[in-house]
């Protein structure tokens, strides 16, 4: 009888590998790939449909509308909102929960898998857009890379936060995780991100746009107070950690429900 207590890092790695394998073999990855390819294709069409399109502006618009406006919300919903909820709905959770692994390891491992898939696709997609749009003018391909990387990094940071929010709802209300994640992102992140004045700080999407040097848009953008960028980054990271910690607390206290038995 040789079972051992899994050290925390080992447990997180095992959960991460398991979560990544499920993502790689699942249908959601295909849906996400199609969504990213559509955005890349749309950017290419917008760039080459007319002669006078500035490639830098084309990349910027693709990142603003396709990535910061759509994919950053869609991908976390696909990869993280079902991370724990699916196990519970499909009644496979007892197989995992009975392992000698701290519940927080499930939260962290599943988060890293979902967040990793989100970030990889966002960054890879942004670089693909950059490449496709600049194909006709290779001279600007490298010169414009820093701007694209900055925007992609900011969108990826937002994606990491949204993955934590999705995971939190996945753990807290598994039976309605996707709906609640979509509502949360739509109301708190997307809609509140367009409010005037201080109200806009409810949403982290505003800070994300600032970090990525993307247009902040929304209602009365001039009324929004200016804050240093490091505060925006810190706010996003802090909220990410907070949602993960909440998810870990909820899951560690959660019992299997009667309907899951």
């Amino acid at each position: 009888m040789t079972a051992r207590l899994a050290p925390a890092t080992h447990a997180v790695r095992a959960v991460l590998q398991f979560g990544a394998r499920r993502i790689l073999l699942g249908r959601r990855l295909r849906v996400a790939l199609v969504a990213v390819l559509l955005v890349v294709a749309a950017a290419a069409i917008a760039r080459y449909a007319a002669d006078d399109v500035d490639p830098t502006e084309a990349v910027r618009r693709a990142l603003q509308w396709g990535f910061a406006g759509m994919l950053v919300y869609l991908l976390p919903v696909l990869f993280a909102s079902g991370a724990i909820a699916e196990e519970i709905e499909q009644r496979t959770w007892p197989l995992l929960a009975v392992r000698p692994v701290p519940r927080s390891a499930f939260v962290l491992g599943k988060y890293l898998a979902g967040c990793g898939a989100t970030v990889v696709l966002l960054v890879a997609g942004a670089l693909a857009v950059h490449l496709v749009v600049h194909l006709a003018e290779p001279s600007r391909l490298l010169a414009e890379v820093p701007g694209t990387v900055r925007a992609a990094g900011a969108v990826a940071l937002l994606g990491a936060l949204y993955a934590a929010i999705a995971l939190f709802w996945s753990v807290t209300v598994p039976e309605a995780a996707t709906v609640l994640t979509v509502l949360h992102l739509a109301l708190v992140e997307w809609a509140a991100g367009a409010l005037p004045g201080w109200l806009r700080f409810v949403s982290m999407s505003h800070f994300g746009r600032l970090l990525g040097d993307l247009p902040i848009g929304g209602l009365l953008p001039d009324t929004v107070p200016t804050v240093p960028m490091w505060i925006g980054a810190l706010a996003i990271i802090t909220e990410t950690v907070l949602f993960l910690a909440l998810a870990a607390v909820v899951l560690s206290r959660a019992e299997m429900r009667r309907t899951e038995a």
Binding site: R4, A6, P7, H10, A11, Q17, F18, V101
Partner: peptide, 13 residues
């Protein structure tokens, strides 16, 4: 095999 090996790894192996 993947199923059982994964769950074994979660058990600390």
């Amino acid at each position: 095999l993947q199923t059982v090996a994964t769950l074994a790894a979660l058990g600390g192996m």
